[in-house]
Simulated scan of single mutants.
Amino acid sequence: MATSNGVLRFLESRKNLTGSALGLIGLGLTFAGAAGAYWPVVVAGLYGAGALIAPPERPPAPDFPAPAEQLGELRGDFATLRGYLAEVELPPAASGRLTELDGLLTALLEPGWVADALATDPEAVHALSRAIRQDIPESVDTYNRTRWWTRLTPGTEPPERHLERQLTVLHDEAAGIAAALQDAEARRQRTHTHYLEERRRGEG
């Protein structure tokens, strides 16, 4: 089966098709009497030349989801994460920080012009995806597991401190994404102002 597939791929390849086309030209020259007694060499040579000049086969590039499509999937994962977090008991300080982070992520992922702007930045989409699918659940789950051990060994560093620090870092990262999007819109506004002023000068 693999051999037959390989033969079929070769028959359909650019090299074979181009070589065959030039080989047919060689046969045409033979029938016209231009190739003489060396017609097999002429046909084989033209076929070989066609196979050499044909562009190499190029496998199709993988069709990964575009950032806009990734945002749609990310919204679903964010809803799943929020359901998980609603069932988790967190200390007040960490809970407050998580609420701030939740509000920021909700605003960034809300369908509309903000999400459209976000979709133009694949690195920002990746950062949010990592936070939602990995960092936040890992931080909360690690806190819960460490808290259980802390009850057995009192006197160790409170795990909620690490959770607060982790959520603070994640909040700052999300805030940085929002600030970058805001800066991009501000640059766009300034560019449009400059364009209008230059156009007025040119018409004046």
Rank of each mutant, 00 (worst) to 15 (best):
P154G: 10
E138G: 10
R97Y: 02
Y84R: 11
E89G: 10
L104S: 03
V125T: 04
A86Q: 12
P92I: 11
R130I: 06
A131N: 07
V125E: 01
G112I: 05
A117S: 12
D121S: 08
A131L: 14
V114N: 02
A124N: 05
L118T: 01
E123T: 12
P154A: 10
V114E: 04
Q134A: 13
E123P: 01
G112V: 05
S139M: 09
E87T: 13
S129M: 08
V125I: 06
H126D: 15
R133V: 04
L109C: 01
N144H: 13
L104A: 00
R145Q: 15
A127L: 13
A127T: 13
L128I: 08
E89T: 13
A107C: 05
E138H: 10
Y84H: 09
T153Q: 11
R130K: 10
R151C: 02
R97N: 08
L108V: 01
G96W: 04
R145A: 15
N144G: 13
P154W: 03
A127V: 08
L98P: 03
T153A: 15
T106Y: 10
W149P: 01
D121M: 03
G103F: 04
R133N: 11
L118F: 03
P111W: 05
A131M: 12
V140A: 05
P111R: 03
P92G: 10
T120V: 10
